[in-house]
Design a protein around this nucleic acid. Sequence first.
DNA 1: AGGGGGACCTGTGCGC
DNA 2: TGCGCACAGGTCCCCC
Length: 291
Amino acid sequence: MPELPEVETVRRGLIPALEGRVLARVETRRADLRVPFSPRFEQRLTGRRVTDLRRRAKYILLDTDGPDTLVIHLGMSGRITLCAGGLSESPGRFHHPVLRNSDGHDPHDHVVMETDHGTRIVYNDHRRFGLMVLVPTNELDSHPLFKNMGPEPLEDAFTGAVLSAVLKGKRTPIKSALLDQRVVAGLGNIYVCEALYRARISPQRLASTVAGVRAERLVPEIKSVLREAIEAGGSSLRDYAHTDGELGYFQHHFAVYDRLGAPCLTPKCRGKIRRLVQAGRSTWSCPVCQR
DNA sequence: AGGGGGACCTGTGCGC
DNA sequence: TGCGCACAGGTCCCCC
């Protein structure tokens, strides 16, 4: 999936098209994504004005002038594209060929919305690990999706001391701990690998031993890698693209992710990037300068 | 109680 | 060319 920087880029791309606009038409083309759409999904959204577009971790929150907030997650392969009225739904300028059904639709275009200004918003997700649900706005914090979620990494409240306190006593590798959304919300495989590299911390190190000085070193690196990635419009690997179809370019700045065998970029370090598997997911790191 | 492993999906790229 | 396998920005449930 898009991790925090990619989701943030999508959110920013949606603002000009959606903020203050009325959802004139909402169409779901199947019963579910990873989970079913909320009951009466289309009716509850149609005619509502979008009052705000927020992000929490990897979720986009679309507040309306009704009781509900539309909660969107892009899973691993979700994409949202905008197009002015009259154009085909998936504009076809992506790096993937666009599939078509006999009715002319991309079979992975699962949700199509249209605003009162005629902009079409298309949600495409070929793996369907994403979700779209309606949650009463005043119940968001207590909703199961959010109630146990850790701090936003880019907020000032996320400090070395805060991370340190959560890691203390955790008997799991730091790599797994950082992927745990209860520890810090919004990091995924790429930015965990990159942040650990920048902080020169081994992904295999026990989380409890990162508490203290290493946590103080790690937090600024988490923030800097996320900020730089947002600045670059996120990272485009297989599926991710901006709302206008353009690609992010932070993937060109990876120091370790998917760089198996490449020389470590740390000056004077002779290490070669290795790949290991932790909790079923690939981890890339430099065995020499990450300890 | 908390963490690891599989399940959920489809697509792509590789080796044989 | 084709087939099978491994792997992919995530999360959740089950089981130990």
